[in-house]
Design a protein around this nucleic acid. Structure first.
Lengths: 224, 224
DNA sequence: GTCTATAACACGATAGAC
DNA sequence: GTCTATCGTGTTATAGAC
């Protein structure tokens, strides 16, 4: 009998939300480093100790932010994927949709990734704490695959959403380091990498490449 | 008329080395967080202010460590690559050689990568400050390619060392997060990924895949 | 230029009272 | 649940000695 997942409306819950909202706003306005726990507390009209009562660390506050971005991306992209279509088009929609949502946070993202990449960090995209946001994200990519009118190799198909998610993580890593104006290079990366991925997925069906495909998939499952 | 790059032996240089050696030792023995600047200074028998006279931050101390690892890897691997041989064997030697050198620092590496991945950080493997260590590393991989008896597509050949270096970065990223005993999974990754890379390199010569190869290389050069 | 000593600052985090 | 007070840290500042 698990507790219902519905948002509670008790006093504690209200304080918690107040802290997150204030923190995210300050993060975006002044950046991660310049936003101090004292600053968040003062702006929210509470004490520092109280903030730590709800969130064990400053990093954990950022995690809420991560979840928000994933949720917003999914909400923006899923309507566009309602009707089936070619694989490459759908993948393009998902990837550039994510980029659109993340763009306002580009300056902030550098600090975010710093803690996200640390092994054992709750912010790591691979951590148990990030599972909901990760699942949400993979669901979108599963939608990309399932609504695709392009033929996809049967053995590859079940793993493809997760592989695409990994590619998405790679693109995000590139994006964070992308200092070109308006992150134009990342846009270019998506524009040109999507057709390449599309061709790779098609090639996986070729007789000469099937064994390579199989080997790679086996290795992936082993290491995951 | 640049200053000669030879290691100086003045008093300042000796102090600098003393600080780095002490720091790296403490990092390895007690971890990054538990090693304080005060602790390093005390252990080295100098003042805190003196440490900051030579190194602008604690992070910069870690960079020296990065350079050391690259140098040790090159020194360990290059003798094994003196005689030409098959590409896959040579690549295997280079990658597992790096892993051997890094193994004692696995626990420490998590903290290291945290700052290394931050955009603009001097510790980033892509930064100007890391250029010497990066070049050292790519040189080894160029050696892998050049001494290879396997035929390599002419168009791919000049970029291959850098691409292999990127793969090496990816393996390192995986290794840092690898919590299996003795990082067995990363060993497995190298054992099984090397033949796959070998096959991919061979496949790049196939007529049907040449255009894909060319497109991918063009994109890579554009984004680098 | 190299180095010491010490204090001070701002921050993330914690302890313990209410 | 919420507060105030305090700790330990990276880092900076000051004032000077060799």
């Amino acid at each position: 009998m698990a507790k219902p997942a519905a948002p509670e409306s008790g006093r504690g819950e209200a304080t918690k939300r107040l802290i997150v909202d204030t923190a995210v706003r300050l993060f975006r306005d002044q950046g991660y480093d310049k936003t101090t726990m004292r600053g968040i507390a003062q702006e929210a009209g509470i004490s520092v100790g109280n903030a730590y009562y709800y969130f064990p660390s400053k990093d954990h506050l950022v995690q809420q932010f991560y979840a928000t971005v994933q949720e917003d991306t999914a909400a923006a992209v899923e309507p566009l994927l309602a009707k089936p279509g070619p694989f490459d088009e759908r993948l393009r929609v998902a990837l550039s949709g994510m980029l659109d949502v993340m763009t306002p946070y580009h300056a902030f993202a550098g600090k975010f990734i710093k803690t996200a990449v640390e092994p054992g960090s709750p912010l790591s995209p691979f951590s148990a704490e990030s599972a909901p946001a990760r699942e949400r994200s993979i669901t979108v990519l599963r939608d990309v695959v399932e609504g695709s009118t392009t033929k996809i190799e049967a053995e590859l198909r079940p793993d493809l959403p997760e592989l695409l998610w990994l590619a998405q993580m790679g693109i995000t890593l590139y994006w964070v380091h992308d200092s070109s104006p308006d992150q134009a290079k990342t846009r270019l990366l998506i524009d040109r990498a999507v057709p390449l991925i599309d061709r790779l997925v098609s090639l996986a069906r070729m007789p000469g490449l099937k064994s390579l495909n199989r080997e790679a998939l086996k290795l992936y499952r082993l290491l995951r």
